[in-house]
């Protein structure tokens, strides 16, 4: 029996979908069977981040409405055969699925997979309620900005009220150079404010843009800092004890060198 984990944030644009794609890919690479569920009905994106947009036939609403069997809607990843995507519907809205249907869906999926990772839509309305309905564990993604941390705080409250106690936090898109200058909140500042368990810190990384352009998650790129951070998060999810990487300011000559070499490929 697998585990159902919802990735949520409240605020949009903080990197939920990227996080889901990378953690899921990393877990699959480690040998676990994983299904990623896009619950952002009407605004599906996980398919393009994974590079699977051309393979969609059925979607989550087809499954919950009984238009197809669950297995028919699952799309196998190009790279890992233990990784699957259940895409969101693009032409319906968030009320097309009920919380009861979501619970049942999660129950069915976790019988087949080690990890069921749910990509939650932004906001705290019906889409959010559906996304968390079948989850046993929650990971909140935030960035070091006032608006994102505020929304994370709200979402943590809602998760706890819904019985998802002690959600984990990912701080995404942190810029070590700005933290060092005192122009960006540091990890400790955010943890102080939110008082939650930190499961990972992902540095801002141009490689994410590039990997999203290509539809290949950054965890597959050994040169990507963000990819490395996501690989570590995936390991922590499975229970491995991996310390949080200290932030390094990438200004040294070695970093420059590394970047130059890396670019050639």
């Amino acid at each position: 029996m697998g585990e159902v984990i919802v990735i949520t944030s409240g605020k949009g644009g903080v990197g939920k979908t990227t996080t889901v794609a990378n953690i899921g890919t990393s877990l699959a690479k480690e040998g676990y069977s994983v299904v990623l569920v896009d619950t952002d009905i009407g605004l599906r994106n996980l398919d393009v981040v994974l590079g699977l947009e051309n393979r969609i036939v059925y979607d989550i609403v087809d499954v919950t409405n009984g238009h197809c069997r669950l297995k028919q809607a699952l799309i196998r990843d190009k790279r890992f055969e233990s990784l699957y995507l259940l895409p969101a519907a693009q032409t319906k809205d968030k009320t097309a699925v009920t919380t009861e249907q979501m619970k049942e869906l999660c129950q069915n999926l976790k019988e087949e997979f080690d990890y069921v990772i749910i990509d939650c839509p932004a906001g705290i309305e019906q889409g959010f309620k559906n996304a968390i309905a079948g989850a046993e564990r929650a990971i909140v993604v935030t960035t070091p900005e006032v608006a994102a941390v505020r929304d994370a705080d709200r979402v943590i409250g809602l998760l706890e009220a819904a019985g998802l106690k002690e959600p984990d936090l990912i701080i995404n898109r942190i810029r070590p150079d700005m933290v060092k200058q005192g122009n960006m909140m540091d990890i400790d500042d955010i943890i102080d404010i939110l008082t939650v368990n930190l499961i990972g810190v992902v540095p801002e990384d141009e490689m994410i843009v590039i990997s999203t352009n290509k539809g290949e998650p950054a965890v597959l790129d050994p040169r990507s800092n963000a990819g490395e951070a996501y690989r570590n998060i995936a390991k922590r999810i499975t229970g491995e004890d991996i310390p949080i990487m200290p932030l390094e300011v990438n200004e040294g000559i070695m970093a420059l060198f590394k970047r130059l070499i890396g670019r050639k490929k």
Partner: peptide, 23 residues
């Protein structure tokens, strides 16, 4: 002059206040 002017301290203070209200 930086300590008080650091924008992260401004961010923290504003967050702290807004969260007291939100919560």
């Amino acid at each position: 002059r930086e300590e008080a002017d650091k924008s992260k301290n401004v961010a923290k203070e504003r967050l702290r206040l807004v969260l007291v209200q939100d919560r």
